[in-house]
Structure formats: structure tokens, C-alpha cells
């Protein structure tokens, strides 16, 4: 067979291009398949706002979260917990932090003191955009969903605990019943149904607010225009979507 060089180049270029286009189209077709007719993942981008000045340390969020998400009841397993910070005015570098039973039963009453500033900091998964925990998973069992929620694939998790070590915020644990990693799901089963998370539902002061940055009607936009917010450990560039208002710099 005698093919001139020009014709060979033209033909092979054409085939290369056609296979490329076909592959892209196939990918787009797969990605475009709606998994849920009522909830479009690409229309949402979830996060949470926490106003530290509004938290009264009642612990209702911790209790509600444990009920809603079937978190092991014994101590030290939490999807969300509340820390009480006591910042000594003379030694701001070393705040005293306590969180008895994650704050689920409230905190032992504390006398007012002129030497310290006391406040409560609710904590939970930061639902990072570039989360270290998902990057280290060796089997692809944890991931950030297209709507911005970091989830664990329980059927696929091998329980190697790598993600637990990788999370800079200490938000993961190994469930002693299933031996798989567990964490805050941002009440994914609730938010896809249009409900708020269990912790935000019961918060009596509105210190916790679930938000959807892709929803133009969400009050978060007006709030962010007028208030400064911070994330925890910004130097790690995790892309945290857990925004804190009125956060003290001593909080780690």
C-alpha cells in the first residue's frame, strides 16, 4: 500500500481528533447523568458559618448530632464537639481548653475572672475544598462531592486510619463497630432533602448556620459582605468552608 506522506498525516490527524471528541462526549454523557431528579449537585456548594460570640456552650448540637448520625455514644467519638477556651490575659499563647464529653452535657460552671477571657468554639469537619484527608486515601474511599461535602464511602473504606492522621482539624475517627473511618457528613441525608443539619436545627442562638454559596437567596452573601470571617489554620490552604465569625486568634 502506497500512501503519500501528506495524506497519511491528514488521515491520522483526523482520526486522532475524532477519537478525542468521541471520548470527551462519552465522558460528558456519563457525568451528565442525573443521580437524583430533585437534587442537582451542581446547584449547591455547602459550608457552615459559626459565630463564636453567639455560642453559649449548651451542647445541644453535640447531642443532636450523635442522635441524628448514630455516632458511638461512648466518649471520644464526635462528628461535632464544643471546646471551651480560657485565654489567660498574661499568657495568651497557652489557652486552657476543655471539652468534657465533647460538651454534650454542657460545661461545669465557671466563676467569672478578671484574668481570663472565656468563650466556646464549636468544631466539626471543615469540608475543605482541597482536604488533606481525601488526598491521602489509598483506595479512593473518601472524597469531596461535587456539592462540596467531604464524605466517606463506607463500603470501600479499608480502615487504614491514614485520613484520621491527615486531618489537621482532628475531625475523623474510626468507628469501633464498622472499623471504617467516620466523620461529619454535614447531615448530607438532610440537606439533600432541603432540611438543615441537626446541629443547626437545635442551636438555640443561631451560632451555627448552614449555608449554600451557590444559592443566591442565601443570607450568607449579605453576611459575608458586611462581616469578616476566618477559617482555622488558614496557612494550610485546605480551602476550609467552615467560616468562623468573631474568632479569637488563640484558637487552633
Amino acid at each position: 500500500m502506497d500512501v503519500p506522506r501528506r495524506q497519511f498525516l491528514v488521515e491520522s490527524g483526523r482520526w486522532l481528533m475524532l477519537t478525542g471528541v468521541a471520548a470527551c462526549a462519552y465522558e460528558a454523557m456519563l457525568a451528565g447523568q442525573p443521580v437524583d431528579a430533585e437534587y442537582e449537585m451542581s446547584d449547591h456548594w455547602w459550608g457552615m458559618l459559626i459565630d463564636v460570640d453567639k455560642c453559649i456552650g449548651c451542647g445541644l448540637c453535640v447531642k443532636a448530632c450523635k442522635e441524628e448520625n448514630n455516632v458511638p455514644d461512648s466518649p471520644y467519638y464526635f462528628n461535632t464537639w464544643v471546646e471551651r477556651y480560657r485565654v489567660q490575659l498574661a499568657d495568651r499563647e497557652h489557652p486552657l481548653v476543655d471539652s468534657p464529653n465533647g460538651g454534650a452535657d454542657g460545661f461545669p460552671a465557671l466563676e467569672e475572672s478578671d484574668d481570663e477571657r472565656v468563650f466556646f468554639v464549636p468544631k466539626l469537619c471543615n469540608h475543605c475544598i482541597d482536604s488533606p484527608c481525601t488526598q491521602v486515601c489509598p483506595v479512593g474511599a473518601t472524597f469531596r462531592s461535587p456539592d462540596g461535602v467531604v464524605l466517606v464511602d463506607e463500603k470501600y473504606c479499608i480502615g487504614c486510619r491514614y485520613c484520621i492522621q491527615a486531618c489537621p482539624y482532628g475531625c475523623r475517627y474510626l468507628d469501633p463497630r464498622t472499623h471504617t473511618a467516620k466523620k461529619c457528613t454535614l447531615c448530607y441525608h438532610r440537606i439533600v432533602k432541603g432540611l438543615t443539619t441537626a446541629c443547626c436545627e437545635v442551636c438555640p442562638t443561631g451560632a451555627r448556620q448552614l449555608f449554600d454559596l451557590k444559592n443566591p437567596g442565601d443570607p450568607i452573601h449579605a453576611y459575608l459582605r458586611e462581616h469578616p470571617v476566618q477559617v482555622l489554620k488558614p496557612q494550610l490552604a485546605t480551602g476550609s468552608k467552615l467560616y468562623y465569625a468573631n474568632l479569637d486568634g488563640t484558637v487552633r
Binding site: D36, D153, E154, T185, Y188, H189, R190, L195
Partner: peptide, 9 residues
Amino acid sequence: DGRDHPLEY
């Protein structure tokens, strides 16, 4: 998978 989790609240 996670969406089928039953509601408590």
C-alpha cells in the same frame, strides 16, 4: 449511599 440515612430530627 449516605442519603438513605433515616431522619431523627
